[in-house]
Amino acid sequence: MAINQKIFNGLQVNRSLLAGGVVLTGIGSVLGAAGAALVCAALFTAGRDWVRSMETAPTTLAQRALHEAKVASSAGWEAWRAEHGSPN
């Protein structure tokens, strides 16, 4: 039996191989996190530039859509009341 191996209930673990795997996994995790951060930064910048280049601000578009939805809902409600003869 080699010095870097230990027997634990019949399981022999090569400690140097295990340590190397842990180190490589850690390095890969750090590189993966750095890559994900770069992708997020690029997408955030592109989205921000796209919003800035719009003719109408997104808040204005949302307010307009909400107003149109309210008008359509009110018109639908009035049509339903007229059809069913409800005084409410």
Rank of each mutant, 00 (worst) to 15 (best):
27 I>L: 13
10 G>I: 07
27 I>A: 13
66 L>T: 14
78 E>V: 04
41 A>Q: 09
38 L>W: 07
83 E>A: 14
52 R>N: 14
14 N>W: 01
26 G>F: 02
6 K>P: 00
83 E>I: 00
48 R>K: 13
56 T>D: 02
81 R>L: 15
51 V>L: 15
16 S>W: 01
81 R>F: 09
12 Q>V: 06
39 V>Q: 11
85 G>A: 05
2 A>W: 03
60 T>P: 08
37 A>H: 05
14 N>R: 01
65 A>Y: 05
19 A>H: 05
32 G>M: 07
23 V>D: 10
37 A>D: 01
70 K>I: 07
40 C>H: 07
15 R>K: 04
7 I>P: 07
5 Q>I: 10
76 G>D: 06
13 V>T: 12
5 Q>V: 08
66 L>F: 13
87 P>I: 04
35 G>S: 08
48 R>I: 01
45 T>Y: 12
59 T>Y: 11
51 V>H: 11
64 R>T: 15
74 S>C: 03
42 A>F: 06
2 A>S: 12
22 V>N: 08
87 P>Y: 07
85 G>D: 05
27 I>C: 04
23 V>M: 11
17 L>Y: 01
4 N>Y: 09
42 A>D: 09
15 R>H: 01
25 T>W: 02
19 A>Q: 13
34 A>D: 01
64 R>D: 11
31 L>S: 10
23 V>I: 12
85 G>K: 03
88 N>I: 08
19 A>V: 12
20 G>E: 07
77 W>F: 07
73 S>H: 10
36 A>S: 12
20 G>Y: 00
35 G>T: 09
46 A>H: 08
2 A>L: 12
10 G>K: 04
45 T>P: 00
5 Q>L: 15
81 R>V: 13
73 S>V: 04
82 A>C: 01
20 G>I: 00
6 K>V: 12
78 E>F: 05
49 D>P: 03
34 A>L: 13
83 E>D: 11
79 A>C: 00
35 G>I: 02
1 M>L: 14
79 A>G: 00
42 A>K: 12
30 V>S: 03
19 A>D: 10
32 G>L: 08
41 A>V: 08
24 L>H: 05
13 V>A: 11
33 A>W: 06
55 E>V: 12
1 M>Y: 09
26 G>Q: 04
40 C>L: 10
36 A>K: 10
67 H>L: 15
76 G>W: 01
3 I>S: 10
24 L>C: 00
41 A>T: 07
47 G>H: 10
82 A>S: 11
87 P>H: 04
49 D>C: 12
10 G>Q: 05
3 I>Q: 09
45 T>L: 13
26 G>A: 09
48 R>Q: 09
9 N>K: 11
37 A>G: 04
